[in-house]
Nucleic acid binder design. Structure first.
Length: 486
RNA sequence: UCCUCCUUAGCUCAGUUGGUUAGAGCACCUGACUGUUAAUCAGGGGGUCCUAGGUUCAAGUCCUAGAGGGGGAGCCA
């Protein structure tokens, strides 16, 4: 690598680094080679073998290094390399190939590498290697999550996952938001967002006990009960009431016994929190944010999207584009109930004001009635969290849920209650311990401000963007009830 | 957690009213083949029928319980 000299033109430094990454120690990535037209030039490529086929005289090796969904065809003369070497090059093996780029004689690819030198880094016993050239079910691939990144499907998903995460940081950074790291271990037990995983170093077979015959957590590592976070929101609010606009993006844990294609015990959540935003500003941000991310993926992950569109979901790209183009519908909870009850539809669960909307209701609104994403606001306070801003009707709160086609609720958020008296009275009504939240309440005591925020489930968005139907297939190593393998 | 369906070869599945030695395609192995595209052709090996009980002369098949998985629901992101 060349020395990096800081100088007059910052952009030069960027390109210096960029080039040094494209070609590392003389290695070229498959993606670069495939888009090259330097016919006759020698390249060295390294990657994993997808298939090998051929005849007595010539072997064709499909080589993939994950830089793109496409594999490059390596052509090897059998007499030159010998059957002994070529025998080792089976599906799943890892090789280094040095050869000359040529226009392909065969159909199906534009360029190919005619090998001069092949080195086998690692063989993969074909009778034991679980991945075949044929397609596998997603259920089977879940059982071999350590190898599934080597498939076309999971290569695409992981590249899209990366791009989506990158786009999230990009969006917020450009907009002047600060990324803050909220704690993964929390002593606050009052968030009410679900069952929590306990964090402890106590000896579970012989824990210290109090006089009242309860486990004595004062002896535990933190001197009190501690859990894995179910949300970074309360801490994010602290950041927003100092830095104005912040966001979190980190792992979140829920110990709910949820066995569905939409729930994980460990998932990633994005939680922006903004001072001086009311509920309408919040909705505007959520819509712009989602559309930015979808456009980013459409522009940067085209080949992967086309693959997923072809193999799993024929309407994927069309659906994403549709959401980008349409203005999200905005209605209140009360309006939603009216639409549902006058729809003439026979729902399994009848609608009545005060009850939460069921999946079937959300699907009807999004997929049949409006045919576009719907943001529902002003829910009854009885079915929403304590921190949401109370409306003057004394019945509803300034909550907002964004509902997406196919996957339902993708964003849940609200304007927050910034008035101390109202917040405390709500906390007391719900029987939540005020003492545990002293630090949160201090923000309302000292320089409180109107503010809003929302939570976006990263894997839920991944479901929408990839067209996958099970959330276990959009995270590398899913954690669900009875499953923490790998 | 509830409802429902499923579990047979490495993978995907068939297996009739319970009845001899449990099958197929693909994969794998061997061989053939002058550039293949999920290569093709011929031959071969490969089974704890999820687990534990039970009914029966006889269970892959019927019954009970359990485990794992899919779909739906609830909780939610």
């Amino acid at each position: 690598m060349q020395d990096v000299v800081y100088g007059n033109k910052g952009t030069d430094i960027f390109y210096l680094f960029k080039n040094s990454i494209m070609i590392i120690k003389g290695r070229t990535k498959v993606k670069e080679a495939l888009s090259s037209s330097d016919y006759g030039k020698e390249f060295t490529l390294k990657g994993w073998v997808r298939t090998r086929r051929g005849s007595r005289n010539v072997a064709f090796i499909a080589l993939n290094d994950g830089s793109t969904i496409n594999s490059i065809q390596v052509v090897a003369d059998v007499p030159v390399f010998g059957e002994e070497l070529l025998k080792k090059i089976t599906t799943g093996s890892c090789i280094s190939v040095t050869g000359v780029l040529k226009e392909s004689m065969g159909k199906g690819q534009n360029v190919e590498i005619v090998a001069n030198k092949i080195e086998v880094y690692g063989t993969a016993d074909p009778s034991a290697y679980p991945l075949q050239k044929k397609g596998h079910t997603l259920e089977f691939l879940r059982e071999i999550a350590h190898l599934r990144p080597r498939t076309n499907t999971f290569g695409s998903i992981l590249r899209i996952r990366h791009a989506l995460a990158f786009a999230i940081h990009n969006y917020f950074n450009d907009k002047g938001f600060y990324y803050i790291h909220t704690p993964v271990i929390t002593g606050a037990d009052a968030e009410g967002a679900g069952e929590m995983f306990r964090v402890t170093t106590l000896d579970l077979s012989n824990p210290p006990m109090t006089n009242e015959n309860k486990v004595d957590f004062s002896e535990d590592f933190f001197g009190k009960e501690a859990n894995l976070t179910v949300s970074g929101q309360l801490e994010a609010e602290l950041g927003a009431l100092a830095l104005s606009e912040v966001y979190t993006f980190g792992p979140t844990f829920r110990a709910e016994n949820s066995n569905t294609p939409r729930h994980l015990a460990e998932f990633w959540m994005i939680e922006p929190e903004m001072a001086f935003y009311d509920i309408d500003d919040n909705m505007d941000l959520a819509e712009e944010f989602l559309k930015y991310l979808l456009v980013y993926i459409l522009e940067h992950c085209r080949e992967d999207l086309e693959f997923l569109n072809k193999m799993y979901d024929k309407e994927l790209i069309e659906r994403i584009s549709h959401v980008v183009e349409k203005k999200f519908e905005r209605i209140t909870y009360t309006e939603a109930i009216d639409i549902l009850s006058s729809s003439g539809r026979n729902f399994e669960f009848p609608t009545n004001w005060g009850a939460d909307l069921q999946s079937e209701h959300e699907r009807f609104l999004v997929e049949e009635h409006f045919k576009r994403p719907v943001t529902i606001t002003d829910y009854p306070k009885t079915i929403k969290a304590f921190y949401m801003k109370q409306n003057d009707d004394n019945k509803t709160v300034r909550a907002m849920d964004v509902l997406f086609p196919k996957i339902g609720e993708i964003i849940g958020g609200s304007q927050r209650e910034e008035i101390m008296e109202r917040l405390v009275s709500r906390i007391e009504e719900l029987g939540i311990s005020k003492d545990d939240l002293w630090w949160y309440l201090d923000t309302r005591r000292f320089g409180t401000a109107p503010h809003s925020g929302f939570g976006l489930g990263f894997e839920r968005l991944m479901l929408f963007v990839t067209g996958m139907s099970n959330i276990r297939d959009v995270i590398p190593f899913p954690r669900t009830p009875k499953n923490a393998e790998f």
